[in-house]
Design a protein around this nucleic acid. Structure first.
Lengths: 193, 193
DNA sequence: CTCTATCTTGAATGTCCATTCAAGATATCT
DNA sequence: AGATATCTTGAATGGACATTCAAGATAGAG
């Protein structure tokens, strides 16, 4: 006869941020308590355990990213131009945010996927979904005659995603706007002709 | 009046492997003991502490990789062909090794660099060095007229390295030989014109 | 062969962590 | 207003961890 007081989405985004910043193993419950405002007991009540919190955060991340993705393609521009905007946004994120702001998925993939096949699967599925969404946009670009008809859109999507992964890692060591923009420009050039 | 009994290089390569496999935080001293054959006391005597072991392993990794790199370019082929071999080898590594066999540098970069600026610096320097070495090979390729004279070799090196980073991350989720080979092929095409 | 400096061993230490749980608080229902 | 189901709190727990250290082993010097 009483509802939870905390805002689940806010808590998950805070946890997300903490995990992205310090990694899973290095984020203690004490830090999660500070980040989320939830006491240990509440976290365990709501998410079973620390791993459960990560799983929930990953799911929230998926939802947030999917929404963000759709917004990039919700306007009336050509799909190829929207892909460019999407890529430019990755660069902006790389520059503006603290260096670890990579991506919860790749971060978790590096840290824990090897030791937890369920999380490995979830992350792989999420990234495959993103790849699939990108492929659809390339298909649209093809239909709009922005890219040549003989291109393999799935291949383009994979290459584009590979570039984004690389860009993020590169940004860790060289967070200089000019360089990252130049790399993104080249990547865009290579997938669009 | 007595020399250490263990082989420093062997120990460091074993530690490297353990760190690459499970990450730094998740590799306990107990596991390091098993992996290296050294008892805790010996590890502390030789490397100060766990972090010291990581630093030494990173240095060994740098040396090993530099040697490996030079071997790829020690033959008489054109530099551009050697770059292709180097890239193909990255793909082979991605396929053959256990999925986490990424690269100690990027692995550590993701996990700990944010919280340890000294390690961050060491890793960044190492990767910059690799980038510089790649740029030199592209310069050589230019001198050999394998690539056009108006190319920016430093840009090519950065893009090539970005692609390698991306390839490794991509391999975590899609370790299929055909796909990775295709991506590498495209990357090679894009840097060689 | 003896001595000693150095290495090796692994149990002991203290810290930190994820997790639990019982007491206290409070919203909702009757 | 009273009852009760549910949430919140935070101290307590047990385990795992990095690190230490003193005892034991051994290679080399004399």
């Amino acid at each position: 006869m009483r509802n939870a007081e905390f805002d689940r989405e806010k808590v998950l985004r805070a946890a997300m941020k903490a995990f992205m910043h310090k990694g899973y193993a290095n984020t203690s419950m004490q830090e999660l308590k500070k980040a989320t405002g939830l006491h240990p007991g509440s976290i365990y009540c709501a998410f079973e355990n620390k791993r459960g919190l990560l799983l929930a955060a990953l799911e929230q991340y998926r939802v947030d990213r999917a929404t963000e993705f759709d917004q990039f393609f919700a306007n009336s521009h050509l799909a190829l131009l929207n892909l460019k905007s999407y890529l430019d946004n990755v660069v902006v994120e790389c520059i503006s945010c603290d260096s670890a702001q990579a991506c919860l998925l790749t971060k978790a993939l590096n840290e824990i996927a090897e030791q937890d096949s369920e999380i490995q699967q979830i992350i792989s599925d999420n990234l495959s979904l993103l790849q699939q969404s990108l492929a659809e946009k390339f298909e649209q670009a093809k239909a709009e005659r922005s890219i040549s008809a003989d291109k393999d859109c799935h291949h383009l999507a994979r290459y584009f995603l590979m570039g984004i992964y690389g860009l993020r890692t590169f940004a860790h060591t060289h967070p200089e706007a000019k360089v990252l923009e130049q790399l993104a420009e080249q990547l865009y050039h290579d997938v669009s002709q």
